[in-house]
Each structure stands twice: as C-alpha cells, then as structure tokens.
Amino acid sequence: MKIAIASEGKQVSGHFGHCEGFTIYEIGEDKSLKKNFVENPGHRPGFLPVFLKDLNTDVIIAGGMGETAQVLFNENGIEVIVGAQGDCDDVIQEYIKGNLESTGSVCTEHQHEGHCEE
C-alpha cells in the first residue's frame, strides 16, 4: 500500500495542490515502512490525482483540499484524508494504527493558498 502525504518539509501541508511535494510511504505486508519524497510537479487542474495514481498511490493525506480534487482522487480509486496536521512521520503512524480519520473539510479559498486550515 502506498500513502502520499502532501508535505512542506517534514510537516503536512495545509493544501495539497500548493505543497512542496509528497512524502510517499510504502507499507509492506510485513508492516515494513519505506519512505521517499517526490517533488510537486506543479498545480494544474486535474493533474495531481492522475500523477499520484501513476505512482500507484492508494491514499492521499493533506491538511486541506478542494472539492474537485477530492472527487478526482476518488474517481481514480485514491482514498482522501483531509484535516491532518503535524509531522508526516507521526501522521503516518496514526494512519497505520487506524487513528487517522478525514474531517471531510473542503477548501474553497484557493486564492489564499496555504491558509486552508484557518
């Protein structure tokens, strides 16, 4: 299973489309964990869901995300979890434990990138 976390450095990004990149965690059947970072290739409508699908991503985790992006991720078979905050390594551990739930929040203020959690 592959989980992508929209990242700013080691922290979960407030808005997935404008993040620095994606910390990709691969969880093996034996619960082993591999991690790598993929730079955000750029925010273009409809592009990132397909980009992450091409990386075989199963789940996207972000602080916030617009409604259209959430629909496109779901159409690509990628589970969306929004409302996450904090250190990416801590967030993935909470996901593995089954303690991370999506708030379902939808960003509407895209002109204010980076302020989706306010």
Rank of each mutant, 00 (worst) to 15 (best):
M1L: 10
K2E: 08
I5F: 06
A6K: 03
A6R: 03
A6G: 07
S7A: 15
S7V: 01
S7I: 03
S7Q: 00
E8G: 05
E8F: 01
K10E: 15
V12D: 04
F16N: 09
G17L: 13
H18I: 13
C19T: 13
E20H: 14
E20D: 15
G21H: 06
G21S: 12
F22W: 10
F22Q: 11
T23D: 09
Y25N: 13
L33Q: 13
K34C: 09
K35A: 07
K35I: 10
P41S: 04
P41W: 00
G42T: 07
R44T: 15
R44N: 15
R44H: 15
G46Y: 07
F47Y: 15
L48Q: 05
P49K: 07
P49G: 08
P49F: 10
V50M: 10
F51Y: 14
F51R: 04
L52M: 11
L52A: 13
D54H: 02
N56E: 09
V59E: 03
I60K: 04
A62G: 03
G63K: 03
G64V: 04
M65S: 05
G66C: 07
G66P: 13
A69R: 07
Q70P: 02
F73S: 08
G77P: 09
G77C: 04
I78T: 07
I78S: 08
I78E: 06
I81H: 00
G83H: 02
C88S: 15
V91S: 01
I92M: 11
Q93N: 14
Q93W: 02
E94Q: 14
E94F: 02
G98Y: 04
G98E: 00
E101K: 15
S105Y: 09
H112G: 06
H112W: 11
E113F: 12
E113N: 11
H115I: 00
E117C: 12
